[in-house]
Amino acid sequence: MTDDDPDRDIRCQDALQAAYRELVSAAIMAGWSEREVVLAIGELADKHLLSLETNDNADALIALLRRMT
C-alpha cells in the first residue's frame, strides 16, 4: 500500500474495525452505554487530532525561528 492510494483511509478503517468493536464491547460490558462509549472515543480522537496539529504548528514555528537565527 502506498501513501497515494485513494482508498488508504478506508483500508485503515478496515484494519482498525475489529479492535474498535472489541473496545466498544469491553466498555459496554464495563457498564457504559454504547452512546457514551462512542462519544468518548470521538472526544478522545478529537483531542488527539488537536494535539497532533498543535505539535505540527510548534514544529513549523521552531523551524522558522531556526532559519531566522
Results as ranks from 00 to 15, higher is better:
L44Q: 08
L44V: 08
R35W: 03
D14S: 06
T69A: 06
T69Y: 05
E53C: 04
R35V: 12
A18H: 13
N57Q: 13
Q13L: 12
L49A: 13
R8T: 00
Q13T: 02
I28T: 08
W32C: 02
D3R: 12
L65Y: 14
L39A: 09
G31I: 04
N55D: 10
K47N: 12
E43L: 10
R67Q: 14
L49S: 08
R11G: 01
T69G: 13
E34G: 04
L44M: 15
R67H: 12
L64G: 00
I62A: 14
S25C: 03
A27T: 02
M1D: 02
R11F: 06
W32M: 06
L39V: 10
E22S: 13
R35L: 03
D5M: 05
L49H: 04
N57Y: 02
A40R: 04
N55P: 00
A26I: 01
E53M: 09
D7K: 07
S51E: 06
A40F: 02
R21I: 08
E36F: 03
M29Y: 03
V24I: 15
W32F: 14
D14N: 07
E36Y: 02
R8N: 03
S33P: 01
L65I: 10
Q13S: 09
D46R: 11
R8C: 02
P6G: 03
R8G: 01
G42W: 01
P6K: 04
G31A: 04
V38L: 15
A26R: 14
V37W: 00
L64M: 11
A15Q: 11
A60S: 10
C12H: 14
H48F: 10
L16F: 07
R11V: 02
I41K: 01
M1I: 06
H48D: 13
R11E: 08
N55L: 10
L39K: 03
I62M: 12
W32N: 04
L39H: 05
A30G: 09
D14W: 03
L61M: 13
I62V: 14
E43A: 10
D46K: 13
G42S: 13
M1Q: 03
D5L: 05
M1P: 04
R66I: 05
D56Y: 03
S51W: 07
W32V: 00
A18D: 15
A60H: 09
T54V: 01
L49Q: 11
L50P: 00
M1G: 15
C12R: 14
E36N: 05
H48I: 04
L61R: 15
S51I: 02
R8L: 15
A15F: 04
A45P: 00
W32S: 07
D56Q: 09
I62S: 07
I41W: 00
A60K: 15
L52Y: 06
Y20E: 09
A30N: 11
P6C: 04
E53N: 06
D4S: 10
I62Y: 12
A60F: 08
L44H: 08
V37I: 04
D59W: 02
G31W: 06
T69F: 03
T69E: 12
Y20C: 08
R66D: 15
